[in-house]
Design a protein around this nucleic acid. Structure first.
Length: 195
DNA sequence: CGGCCGATCCACT
DNA sequence: GTGGATCGGCCGA
């Protein structure tokens, strides 16, 4: 079933990042449906987290969408080329978010191949946040789009994820975050778990 | 208005 | 395993 807004407005963001593993992210743009099982996430804990764009309550046009109530997309451009897709969580004015770093394609694989210009051969296809957005067709123009909508949503298909199947570690690519770079906020699904 | 730099990716070794 | 590409957003002046 489709996750309702209640799922996203909770806290802590680390719990939501963990619970998103094994859920299914769907996009439907121009009648093209693509979906994948979420296999990797990272939590970004808002104003107290030096790795977050909202650290120290920073507000810009780009980050403003993180301050609305949970259940919308926060998409921004990284390195001028990669569209990175985040899920805003918590209540209004608490700018927490979960970065989607990896999925396993399950639906619309041909569409994803067309978008990415690559063939899916079972691995190395949607194993990075830029690749995930590209395959799902997500762009910065989708920032602020509701995750309880007909274009973008997440489904719980009842898959039971054991804690043994979750690998936890520090987040990737944030050395500037000082001691917060050591936080164990990255959640990875064991390769034993398949869609 | 200019300079700096990044929640990455890929080609190449 | 690693270094270069790449350009919009952010900040300071």
């Amino acid at each position: 079933m489709k996750l309702s807004q209640d799922f996203y407005t909770r806290s802590p963001v680390t719990l939501i990042a963990k619970e998103l593993l094994g859920k299914y992210i769907f996009t439907q743009f121009e009648d093209r449906i693509t979906a994948g099982m979420i296999s990797e996430t990272e939590a970004y804990e808002g104003v107290t987290d030096q790795a977050s764009h909202a650290y120290n309550n920073r507000r810009t046009n780009r980050t403003e969408v993180m301050y609305v109530a949970g259940g919308v997309a926060y998409v921004y451009l990284c390195y001028g080329v990669h569209h990175l897709f985040n899920i805003v969580t918590n209540i209004r004015d608490i700018p927490h978010a979960v970065l989607l770093r990896g999925i396993i394609p399950v639906e619309g694989i041909g569409i994803m191949e067309k978008r990415t210009g690559k063939r899916y051969n079972g691995k190395g296809f949607t194993d990075g946040p830029g690749k995930v957005s590209n395959a799902l067709g997500i762009r910065v123009t989708h920032s602020g789009v509701s995750l309880v909508s007909k274009r973008l949503w997440i489904e719980d298909k009842g898959k039971d994820i054991k804690s043994d199947d979750i690998i936890i570690g520090p987040r990737i690519g944030i050395p500037y975050a000082n001691e917060d770079a050591l936080l164990q906020y990255r959640f990875l699904l064991s390769s034993k778990v398949t869609p």
